[in-house]
Amino acid sequence: MSLIDLANPSRFLALTARALPWLAAATVLAFAIGITEVYFAPDDYQQGATVKIMFIHVPAAWLGVFAWIVMSAAALGTLVWRHPLADVAAKAAAPIGAAFTLMCLVTGSLWGRPMWGTYWVWDARLTSVLVLFLMYLGVIALWRTMDDPAQAARAAAVLTLVGAINIPIIKFSVDWWNTLHQPASVLRLGGSTIHPAILVPLIVMAVAFTLLFVTLHVAAMRNEIMRRRVRTLMMLQAGARMGP
């Protein structure tokens, strides 16, 4: 199996049809181990049991960023090689990345409520994740506004790459904005070093989340390929009706 083989949509479908059950099984297994580890993980001396939220919050944040990296790589494929499979990969990754970013935001605010006394503070990290979420929604909106998939792919690729350059800049300026007027009584998260008893379940959960992302992404890519076939067939049908 080489990259060239995978680059052909039909072969991609055939290969992933075989790989998908294994990926799903690996994901379930990783989550089973991860949840067990989380169950037995000790409480944090400062934050108590709420630290358990971290085991989904942090991997979700990591995947929110990772999905954008995947989209950027696919965007390069779209712009440089004009490969349709790259378009498909970019389009399939966007909703999944947005969902993980949303998960990060939701769990973060549920963590913040007992820790800070409010669901939301304009903390630098939370705010950066919120901006990332907005960028995802923008990319999805762009995909949804254009009828022609190839054209939409190129536009979304440009936006994704601009985002990839801009997100670190946004992160930096948000940090700066936040230190400029930091509210005093906010408990800083992750300020202390992480104990191994917490680090191990966190890593297992991160692996499980990554496997979940890969599984969902491959499945969504297969759907996207099928959607394009449906589109082609519909155009063929319309053409057959009109033409001689």
Partner: peptide
């Protein structure tokens, strides 16, 4: 023992599960 904030922890896990279930269901 999830301590005094058990509701928040459980809600966070339910929310995460719901989001993943939504993704899988959509696909």
């Amino acid at each position: 023992n999830l301590g005094p904030h058990a509701a928040f922890i459980v809600t966070a896990y339910i929310a995460a599960t719901a989001i993943v279930a939504g993704l899988i269901g959509w696909i």
